[in-house]
Design a protein around this nucleic acid. Structure first.
Length: 316
DNA sequence: AGCATTCCTCACAA
DNA sequence: ATTGTGAGGAATG
């Protein structure tokens, strides 16, 4: 028995670099390439050796692909935090079975078999999606990483940073925000950060409300409409019933489910998606979105590769 | 009929 | 690849 209560794994430093091994996870539990590149998070980047690095809370994590699983490591972190974030304890096979079995979804679920909806911090999701309008995913990642470096807290001598608090962004200088190519998004980001800084109970309160009520509260925030509210509900608050509809989703739904309609209003898409996909619609949405992006001839995971200068910045 | 109100869509700027 | 705004048109009473 280990009297310290620490597992031997937690003590092992990797190659003397400061990264500590957290053991392994199996590909049967999750496909990290799919889950980290399907558009739900901007917090992860891919290094040239194909490993993934990102920050959860106040610790950095590294996920190194192997043939049948992943080695996982951290700076200042622990195994359970990563497993919770990756949502490994949810029964995803069961959820898959409860989704409808139309042709599009059948294709999407075989393409995204290992895709999981992550458990992200709701404030980080909200702030990140406020940076997202009319920006491609790699640029959103760059902007949110700049926010970390400018207003977050450094993690133990590394060049990884926590996500800035609402208070930190509430008082950020407009000019410094604009310098990060935030444009018109800066105003909304700061205004929403102020509201949350003034109302620390905002997210705790949402957790006790129905998805519809919580959605209405989110939409009251500056710069937050239905799309961003649904993303926060799905990715940050675990509401698997919410179904974000952006322009790509709109195209996909119209071409696959309303092939002979020229125009379908968002209200109708939202309503029929809820009726058709049910309480796990958000999972269906991610499967469809990921599959649609792939069939457009792209490799979303490759798009998140860090440029050499970005990789050099990380310094480990 | 004229008018006020509401609701919706569209285009456009940020 | 989103939201906020305002103009203009249709429906309502």
């Amino acid at each position: 028995m280990f009297k310290t209560g620490l597992s031997p794994i937690a003590k092992t430093s990797v190659r003397g670099s400061g990264w500590e091994s957290l053991g392994r996870i199996s590909r049967a539990q999750i496909d990290c390439e799919q889950s980290l590149s399907c558009g739900q998070t901007f917090a992860w980047g891919r290094l040239r050796d194909d490993s993934w690095v990102g920050v959860i809370g106040s610790a950095a994590y590294r996920i190194l692909p192997e043939p049948d699983g992943y080695r996982i490591e951290s700076l200042q972190g622990n195994r359970q935090t990563l497993l919770d974030y990756l949502s490994l304890s949810r029964n995803w096979e069961q959820i898959l079975q409860e989704l409808p079995s139309d042709a599009a979804l059948a294709a999407a679920r075989s393409a995204g078999r290992g895709l999981r909806i992550l458990n992200q911090d709701p404030w980080e999701s909200l702030a990140s999606f406020l940076c997202s309008p009319v920006k491609p995913i790699p640029e959103i990642r760059r902007i949110t990483w700049k926010l970390r470096a400018s207003w977050g807290t450094s993690i133990a001598g590394s060049r990884f940073f926590t996500f800035p608090t609402p208070e930190a962004l509430a008082f950020a200088e407009q000019e410094r925000l604009l310098a990060h190519r935030l444009g018109f998004r800066a105003r909304f980001l700061r205004a929403t950060a102020r509201r949350l800084a003034d109302d620390p109970a905002f997210f705790p309160n949402l957790r006790t409300q129905s998805t519809l009520e919580a959605r209405a509260r989110l939409c009251e925030l500056p710069g937050v409409g239905e799309k961003i509210a649904d993303c926060v509900l799905l990715f940050g608050l675990g509401r698997l019933d919410s179904f974000p509809i952006d322009v790509w989703m709109k195209r996909l739904l119209r071409s696959l489910y309303f092939p002979n309609r020229r125009h379908v209003p968002n209200r109708e898409l939202t309503k029929s998606a809820a009726a058709h996909f049910g309480p796990y619609g958000g999972y269906a949405q991610q499967l469809l979105y990921f599959w649609y992006r792939q069939t457009a001839g792209r490799n979303p995971a490759r798009e998140l590769e860090l440029r050499p200068d970005e990789e050099a910045e990380l310094d480990f």
